[in-house]
Design a protein around this nucleic acid. Structure first.
Lengths: 203, 203
DNA sequence: AGGTTTCTTGAACCGCCGTTCAGGTTTGGC
DNA sequence: GCCAAACCTGAACGGCGGTTCAAGAAACCT
């Protein structure tokens, strides 16, 4: 009279992770259910047992991967005492093509243009991203590390700049290297927030 | 003994324009040959008469649209005397979602990740974009409009920033409006180049 | 008019997946 | 051991859409 226990909580995340891998590797438009199944060591019908359609699967894979990223970021940031360190950490993340999944963002953007649901999650994630930056700025101002500046304005600026630069890095632009980006962003933050970052970071 | 004259020079551009429209409207992954044919008022086989495959057609549509944009930009910029006006024009372009085809860029980026040919054109176009900015900066410095600054560094910074912001604008982010972006970028340029732009522009 | 080349297109072809189905296997409880 | 529910999967289905074909129409020349 008692059923077999559900496996959702194990299988779904595993399949989502596999899907994210496939998207990174082959791109969203070339991602096939068969690829995801193979990487998750199962069969296509099994994948569809947990996700009602390919579209749903890929959408959720995209958004959940991004969400995980922010959760990790928020945790790690909270562990750093100094606001300067936090800001440096944010910048370092974006410069590291692997950590900051620019590839996934690049797939998400054009779809968000047409899928209202994706558009909403995108907006939400971006707000989280900017809020994280703005919070660091305010935190630094409270601690006297940063001078006066509009935290929200700075957040929009830095978030967009990091996005743009991360794209170039992901595309392996010869003129936009991670090191150069790092230095550029740190310098910009110094000027805007009136603090010392290049020294603190390691130079 | 004499053949019918070729129509390539007329049909190809027309089809490419139709393809760019379809991409903007439906996205690259949903663009069908039938859509392009319809918009170009012809038939699918006819499209394939001028382009050897769908992949080739879409690739060329993407890159040629971007290229046209830069040609127009360079012409228009050259017509402006003042370096400040030129810089303002560049920023205004990026804020205008229609002129600066962020939608096409967003489609181009993830593909450039996997298609070496697209990657090359992308790199070339971005170089052109940055060079245009750097040239304006140097021009302004010669004319005494701008203070000392590393023109190439500034170009990388502004180009990436405008890319990132243009994405947000294209996605109709409620916090990143064209007006706000315009002001933010002008202010940044003022600080970095030591000049007055907000006054000159219209405020 | 006739000949040559270019262009056009309706119809058919074909491969590739997403999806469904039908039957099986596992798991846990009585 | 038997039942019920959850899971799995090989095989088949079906549609969409890129591509090809073959036959014709249009343009230009002599």
């Amino acid at each position: 009279m008692s059923p077999r226990p559900r496996l959702d909580h194990v299988r779904r995340p595993a399949i989502l992770a596999a899907a994210a891998d496939v998207i990174r590797e082959r791109g969203l438009e070339n991602a096939r259910i068969a690829d995801v199944a193979e990487r998750a060591r199962t069969s296509p019908p099994s994948v569809l047992y947990y996700f009602s359609s390919k579209a749903e699967l890929l959408k959720e894979a995209l958004t959940s991967a991004e969400e995980q990223f922010y959760v990790e970021m928020e945790v790690e940031l909270a562990e750093l005492e100094s606001a300067c360190d936090r800001l440096i950490r944010i910048i370092d993340w974006s410069c590291n093509a692997e950590d900051y999944d620019a590839a996934l963002w690049m797939e998400l953007w054009p779809r968000a243009l047409r899928d209202p649901e994706l558009a909403d999650t995108r907006a939400e994630l971006d707000t989280r991203w900017r809020t994280a930056i703005a919070d660091v700025v305010r935190y630094g101002q409270e601690r006297g590390e940063f001078g006066a500046a509009d935290a929200d304005e700075f957040a929009v600026l830095l978030a967009a700049l990091l996005d743009g630069l991360a794209v170039q890095i992901a595309l392996r632009d010869t003129e936009v290297t991670p090191e150069r980006v790092r230095e550029m962003c740190l310098r910009l933050a110094e000027r805007e927030l009136g603090c010392e970052l290049l020294v603190a970071s390691h130079g």
